[in-house]
Design a protein around this nucleic acid. Structure first.
Lengths: 244, 244
DNA sequence: CGAAAGATTGAGATATTTCAACTGCGGTGG
DNA sequence: CCACCGCAGTTGAAATATCTCAATCTTTCG
């Protein structure tokens, strides 16, 4: 499931699946389209649940905020992903969904979806698979958070991002993180300085390269190098690593 | 969602819901009952997906194992919880489901469930709410793993357990952890020694008490004390805490 | 241009891990 | 029955990964 096997350059089946689901939704349900800009919230924690949202373009972070003001990025969503699923049981959303870039989300009424699903079982399949994939992804995050050292977590994060791009038919050698170091660190359970240091170490080891302008764009010569770096960081104590 | 509010002694609505779902399943679907003993696996990672499982009694851990042999407890399941949901999308289970005690699980064919759900929408509601609750729970775990210090995580774990008991109408002042310190530590992302020290500190602060025989049974005079301890451990650096 | 925000890097502080010793308990077999 | 062994747990001391604090640098943007 979550092992460190190499990743295909692109993943036609996933590309197909995502396109099919978006098409299916368009064809069988009333959809409320909404254009968002970076910083806009699609829904907020506590707000009454009613709609599920599917990402058509752009990308989004899910922010869970605890009682005492600690806030935590608990997930990232790209094209084809569903948002708001955690709101079904409680009848209210469990986190904030925040756009990280310009994009478009499709709002779908949950009750309408259920009704339509009786006639169109593929809708139900899509919904269930989306929930199931998110559960799997969450479990992988937990594994990462609780068993990997900081460097490996950051490498794993980049690989996750590259995988997400690959599954959408995009190139994976050049990724533009639209997140600050602080946001990445929050998502990965570490401080922004630790993220920065990990990235610097990877750059020194030529696992990644920064483009001339801006340290937000990251060039990844080969994804397998990330996997190797992850393995090395996991196996070896930092004090024994060649590259500081 | 995940704030540190006090917990009702018992939660009639949850008790009701769980009983209703079990009844509903019995009435509307063919169910394969299976008795398990501690250590038995209900399903294993990689095994072909076909059934969902609902806990009728006992409790279970979900173990996610990574490529390189690291293994991680990613969830715990009590009466009324569903297992195997992560297998829907991939058509194979994503982790091992291991019984921690004698109990009974009900196996339900996923295709039969979907078919029955057309006639009995309440089944679909139950399924979706189960998935949604698990997503919410996972997000809470991530929040805990990445923002809380060790002591607070352990306290949060005990509170989570007490809540789970309360939601099932059981007493919460006396809980029997059927997990070793190593298993708890694995689940919480820390070593067994750290778990032990955290429990010792709580015992010294009279937040919990060990029963005379065995350090697996934990007496919790008042659940709110756990919440207070959590807050204190979260706010204050350990070096400033009164109790070591 | 200047200010503000993001990012990098270093040095010291600290929470947690690691390593190790010791205790208690339950089972097993002589 | 008791000695012995292994497993679970506790506790201490040293090692270390990460955090915190602080200085510096870059980029962006009004």
């Amino acid at each position: 499931m979550n092992d460190a096997t190499s990743v295909p350059k692109y993943t036609p089946s996933a590309v197909r699946r995502i396109a099919d689901v978006l098409q299916l939704l368009q064809d069988s349900l009333p959809i409320q389209r909404r254009i968002v800009r970076a910083g806009d919230t699609v829904y907020q924690v506590g707000q009454q649940f009613g709609c599920l949202y599917v990402v058509n373009s752009g990308f989004f972070k899910m922010v869970n905020l605890s009682g005492e003001g600690r806030e935590q990025v608990v997930g990232l969503h790209f094209k084809g992903d569903w948002m708001g699923l955690e709101g079904i049981a409680a009848a209210q959303y469990g986190c904030d969904a925040v756009a990280m870039d310009t994009g478009e989300v499709w709002g779908i009424r949950y009750d309408a979806l259920r009704e339509a699903a009786v006639r169109t079982p593929a809708l139900l399949t899509a919904l269930h698979e989306a929930m199931s994939r998110e559960l799997t992804r969450d479990h992988d995050s937990m594994l990462s958070l609780s068993t990997l050292p900081a460097d490996a977590r950051v490498a794993g994060f980049l690989r996750y991002w590259a995988d997400a791009l690959a599954q959408r038919g995009l190139r994976t050698d050049q990724i533009t993180l639209r997140m600050t170091r602080a946001e990445i660190g929050n998502y990965l359970g570490m401080t922004l300085e630790t993220v920065s240091r990990a990235l610097s170490r990877m750059a020194r080891g030529d696992v990644i390269r920064f483009t001339e302008k801006g340290r937000r764009d990251i060039h990844i010569p080969q994804v397998e190098a990330l996997t190797r770096f992850m393995r090395a960081a996991t196996a070896m104590p930092l004090s024994a690593a060649a590259i500081h």
